[in-house]
Write a protein that binds this DNA or RNA. Structure first.
Lengths: 232, 232
DNA sequence: AAGTGGTCTAGACCACTGC
DNA sequence: CAGTGGTCTAGACCACTTT
């Protein structure tokens, strides 16, 4: 049985996802939700408070609760799944597989993986969108020794992340973050204007001491930001 | 007046900080805290639940609440000192104070700090260089209530970071990372070419539940990257 | 059986905003 | 003024673990 406050959170997420309650718009007040949902105010309050902490809602005492404008929002210290992130905002995730191939590693790539040059690697390039708007390019190389079935997965339904954490428990990760001017192909895929910068996140993950995957994630600078709150 | 659940969180943090309750050790149960602190169980529960969400505590129903083992919290967005970072590379750090002033908070700034509009704030803009090459612009606002001596510090010798951690122990931090096109003044100070993107890191830090400082850090995209390795 | 955390309710008082 | 969110209380029932 899912807790009531979780059901309320899901209920609100669905409304946001369906567009009934759009960004900047007002969400029913606590008392209204108490009446319509039949829960107590403390329970409604918890649901709304948690969604505010998650950055999905925005509250002003004395005024009301609103859907946050900030659409793209992620926690940089976690290795997150883009699909989950989008669904948590109540939006629709879709993925378009641009490239899926087996190739031989060049010198630099082989060095990153710690395998001999000319070893076979899997390569995928996937465009992830939120409500149909491109949000991330995932340019990934995968170690076949760790994930032999990689080429037979339908990445329109399952993200590489979801598949990889299943076959290779995440053990260690390395991140590099840069601001770059995207190349033409990246720019066009993401639907970015010329002269608009991109956020580039390089990530390398290990499982059992072996490099599982390296990935280059491109985000449009105007539509995405990495954010997080933590205790040092 | 700080909310009771915040006071309880601070109380627990102090015990953890002082080493009374070390990693892996058991924290008093909800009922015990209700008795010793005189708060209701819901309030104690909220404090413990939030600290669990923050990764500070670890709870097991039917067993107890424990201080989390923290080894997994090094990540690319640590709050670090630019001067230390440069010195760690064996290079020379220098700082040039561009602006140092007292000003009145506008609406948005006041909102970020959680103070009434027109409250006095300190403002500093400092250019940090590595071996004479500009690397970071630090555009910072500081809460005078927390750091009253801020205006009398020589920031060519001591970084604001070093001063602030001394007067206000860092408790919580919020980060936002963006790729942006810098404005002309930022671009010129950093000696960047036109059309070159910048990495913008916004940070807000808390001490004892009060916002100590907000800062906008600009880095030239071509000369800087954020990197880190951690175990999830 | 006793203790733990997980959840939920039905009240309450407060400071604040809008009219 | 009525409405909003922010907080707090004193109960309650539950599933679970430990003794």
């Amino acid at each position: 049985m899912t807790p009531l406050y979780q059901q309320i959170k899901n209920h609100i997420r669905e409304h946001i996802g369906a567009g009934t309650w759009g960004p900047g718009q007002r969400v029913p007040s606590e008392n209204e939700l108490v009446r319509t949902l039949g829960a107590s105010r403390m329970t409604v309050n918890r649901a709304l408070r948690e969604m505010t902490d998650e950055g999905i809602l925005h509250r002003v005492a004395g005024v009301g609760t609103f859907v946050a404008d900030r659409t793209a929002y992620a926690h940089p210290l976690e290795v997150r799944n883009i699909a989950e992130e989008i669904r948590a905002r109540g939006h629709q995730h879709s993925a378009q597989v641009v490239t899926l191939e087996t190739m031989r590693a060049g010198g630099e790539l082989a060095g990153n993986f710690g395998v001999p040059p000319k070893t076979n690697l899997f390569h995928s390039l996937i465009l992830h969108s939120e409500n149909g708007v491109p949000l991330q390019i995932e340019d990934r190389y995968v170690n076949p020794a760790v994930a032999p079935d990689y080429m037979s997965i339908d990445f329109a339904k399952t993200t590489p992340y979801e598949y990889l954490v299943r076959v290779a428990p995440l053990q260690e990760a390395e991140h590099v973050l840069r601001a770059v001017m995207p190349g033409d192909s990246v720019r066009k895929l993401l639907g970015m204007a010329e002269g608009e910068p991109a956020l580039l996140l390089l990530r390398r993950t290990w499982s059992n001491g072996v490099v599982t995957s390296t990935v280059r994630l491109y985000y449009p600078g105007s539509r995405y930001e990495l954010a997080g709150r933590f205790n040092p």
